[in-house]
Amino acid sequence: MTMKETIDEIRNQLDFEITKVNSLPELDQFRIKYLARKGIIAELFETLKNVPPDQKPSLGKELNELRTHAQNLHDEKKNNLESNQSSQSELIDITLPGRRKWIGSLHPITQTLNEIKSIFLRLGFEIASGPEIEDDYYNFEALNFPPDHPARDMQDTFFISKKTLLRTHTSPVQIRVMEKQQPPVRVIMPGRVYRNEAISARSYCLFHQVEGLYVDTNVTFSELKGTLVAFAQQFYGSDLKFRFRPSFFPFTEPSAEMDISCFLCKGKGCRVCKYAGWLEILGCGMVNPNVYKFVNYDPMKVSGYAFGMGIERITMLRYGIDDIRILFDNDVRFLKQF
């Protein structure tokens, strides 16, 4: 047999034998037989030394091609075998649950507060805060609640001492902000407040408020309405109806309470809105000129508005929660719903 014939035969042999290879060990046998350092093809290269010089180039080329061919056959088979093997040995039951991690949650009060904050931040408000253990001066007096005034009865108070108390609203932060800063002042003041009331489904000894204050030249009641309606439409949806009712807070005048049409029954009347069709969402008003005297603002030069809303109340309305206490129970089954 000439060398050329040998090469052709081996090529045929290769083509045949590779079809018989059905496993990686068999393939390894194949590799050792043909491609190893002492395999058939390597041996043929050895015999190349003995062929006449004029045939060397063409035979050398043929041999190289043979080797490449063998290598290709091997590699291709290897790929096939490996992919087959993986799909066979790694039998996957995709109905099994994946390896999961714990899922955390933000408390619903935080979520509501975050949304309220984001709306007012977009309107150009800053955020301020103040202490919960507060002076009578900031909580009442500077907010135009004179000593021994019946208006103080509106807010049952926890006292720490004769002149120190747990703030009953976030409004004292208004005074603290105005003491430090000249107009324009445009801030919201979120925080925890306390009321000395029996704990029930409707009231807890503490809750959270967001207070707002805007003082500048030419701030009007009309502007107050505009801002709060813009807020409410962002928060509750643009199709809501609203109304402002006259009310009374010593530190604002005129004062108002803002109602929105009940978003659960669309104003038709339901249990949540107590069949009134309206939900009270916040109190507001124009800053009473008496308040400016406590912070050395000139009531003839500036005007402003203030508002305050209860976060728990808004959260409860929003999610249809009918007992405030569940917010403070922190049952994980409850928390995970948010």
Binding site: L123, G124, E126, Q181, P184, V185, R186, Y214, D216, V219, F221, S222, E223, K225, G226, T227, V229, A230, R243, F244, R245, P246, E253, P254, S255, A256, N288, P289, N290
Partner: peptide
């Protein structure tokens, strides 16, 4: 005080009749 009567004016005129508008210019402090 004057503000007490201004409040009465607002109340009697009707809060609903006071225009609802935002006109302030946003300014950063």
């Amino acid at each position: 005080k004057e503000i007490d009567l201004i409040e009465e004016l607002a109340r009697l005129y009707g809060y609903d009749n006071i225009e609802t508008k935002m006109q302030s210019v946003i300014k950063f402090t």
